[in-house]
């Protein structure tokens, strides 16, 4: 049965002229349509496809290189600006340091001057005080001598019964000198 079907199919194929791709019957039509369709494809590719796709790709490449150029120019400008900024900053810092130094010097000088006046003032006061102390001391010493004379005269008067004369008092004026 299967063998029968196979022979039938074979016979049918045989009838049609064998292997279809080798049948010359349709060659002219195949060639005609191939020429038309391949010609259409060639026309489309060469007139439309290449211009649109290739054009877009070229345009994109142009755009990218242009943008890259712009970016590098912008970067150069930015670098310049950075350098200028750094320079300005350094200048400003120098100036600020100068001002600070000046201020410090001025303040040092002012405080030094004030210190000197205060010191002079103080030493003047000290000298005055010293002088005062010396005067007071001298006064006190003078008083001490008088009191001592009086006391000594009183003691002498009590012991001897007669007051010493002023010459005697003067003779014992300096006890350390005449022992």
């Amino acid at each position: 049965m299967a063998a029968g079907t196979e022979t039938a199919t074979e016979a049918q194929t045989e009838q049609k002229g064998g292997f279809p791709p080798f049948e010359p019957e349709h060659f002219p039509s195949q060639l005609l349509w191939l020429a038309i369709t391949f010609g259409a494809i060639y026309l489309f590719v060469s007139k439309v496809f290449v211009r649109r796709v290739g054009g877009t790709i070229a345009e994109r490449a142009d755009r990218i290189s242009r943008d890259l150029d712009q970016a590098s120019a912008a970067k150069a400008r930015a670098d310049e600006a950075t350098a200028a900024h750094a320079k300005a900053l350094a200048e400003a810092r120098d100036k600020a340091q100068g001002i600070a130094r000046e201020t410090r010097d001025a303040m040092n000088a002012a405080s030094e001057a004030r210190r000197k006046t205060v010191e002079a003032d103080l030493s003047a006061k000290l000298a005055a005080s010293d002088k005062e102390i010396a005067t007071r001391k001298a006064q006190a010493m003078a008083n001490v001598s008088a009191i001592a004379q009086e006391a000594a005269a009183a003691i002498v008067a009590r012991l001897t019964g007669q007051p010493p004369t002023s010459a005697e008092i003067a003779a014992v004026q300096s006890p350390t000198g005449k022992r």
Binding site: H26, S29, Q30
Partner: peptide
Amino acid sequence: HFIFTNSA
């Protein structure tokens, strides 16, 4: 013969 075929 020119025929419009399935191939075409």
